[in-house]
Write a protein that binds this DNA or RNA. Structure first.
Lengths: 194, 194
DNA sequence: GTTTGCGCCATACCGTCGGTATGGCCGACA
DNA sequence: TGTCGGCCATACCGACGGTATGGCGCAAAC
């Protein structure tokens, strides 16, 4: 199981053979197929393991006391940090939707990382810090932005610098939504630019 | 070739067999392997075809005269529309990075859709409409947000409504960056929220 | 204590599919 | 007319996901 996470991370889903997983786990395919429904089932188990690991570490950060803005920003930064881990990036962000199918992946994410982002957005809106934009689309955009930023960070030569830049940009985006609310622009003003 | 795009779109990369592609194109594997280096080469050709098709339709919209803000917003809306097309979504956005590898996918995107987003962001910054945040990360975030929003739209029951919501949210995000610049908040104000 | 049944897993095998090796067909060109 | 090379059809190989079968051990039933 742990070996499966390693192999899926290093070689991807298609590049990982079940024989190799069995060899690393010191079992045979009979045992593997007794515990999992097949290669996809094994992948979903690895997916869940990675997500659970992430969730456990993030939960305490998000649940700490403090104002909504502070905890939201810390949560975003912490999640961005998670997105840098190879296992999370490859298994959850990149191959998850392709291997599991987008619909199943979406439902799984609802219980894990996307749920975190959604509650952060919801908290910011409920406390009136950002405008009353539709919650689901905003959360989905932010989630996509985080994933896109994370993949850039990993591909960067100076990951530390890239990570800080992305973090600042994310905060600027959310701060922009806050500024937009406080200046009280109308919808028309937004679309025309004046 | 066109049949390959259809099959990769409907059944994905792993679910598409070369025999099926050959049958649809009325050729044999000998012919296929004469023109393409293999399954991955075939996928990359399909990828290029889809991207070229997209680029041709978007170029005229972006290149039309008008102020930077207007054309940028129209470009974002138009690209969002492209993201709704099944072929683009599955081949370019979802399976591209997995099949081609993230590094090759990133380089290809640089010539196509990500290039468009990057020039839009660059234009907004150069004309002073949004603050001087680092360009590459901002473009990467916006690109991820667009992709995330598009996948949500496709999964929605009411795609038209979802598309309009996402469009408004995207504009709000960029408008927020504009408001942030005009109110002149400092970095410290951003991170502390006051 | 024996038997029956079941959970657990090892082994051998099959079907599919990506990829290759071989050779035939046909036009260009000397 | 001989031959050389681009183009492609056919037959085949190896790898891999998945399955069928059976053995082993343990616990409940009697």
């Amino acid at each position: 199981m742990n070996g499966a996470v390693v192999l899926f991370t290093e070689r991807g889903y298609a590049g990982t053979s079940l024989d190799e997983v069995c060899k690393r786990a010191r079992v045979t395919k009979g045992a593997l197929y007794h515990h999992f429904s097949g290669k996809q089932g094994l992948f979903e188990a690895a997916f869940d393991a990675v997500e659970q690991d992430m969730l456990g570490r993030l939960a305490e950060i998000v649940s700490q006391p403090g104002d909504v803005w502070q905890t939201s920003m810390e949560g975003l930064r912490a999640y961005l940090q998670v997105c840098l881990e190879p296992a999370y990036q490859r298994i959850v962000l990149h191959e998850g939707p392709v291997v599991m199918g987008y619909e199943a992946w979406k439902q799984a994410e609802e219980r894990f990382s996307f749920g975190l982002v959604r509650t952060a957005v919801s908290g910011l809106m409920d406390s009136g810090l950002i405008g009353e934009l539709p919650e689901e689309p905003m959360a989905r955009l932010l989630f996509g932005a985080l994933a896109g930023g994370a993949t850039m960070i990993v591909a960067a030569e100076d990951q530390k610098k890239a990570s800080e830049e992305i973090g600042r940009c994310i905060e600027s985006v959310v701060a922009g939504l806050r500024a937009l609310k406080e200046t009280g622009w109308t919808d028309r003003a937004v679309t025309t630019g004046q």
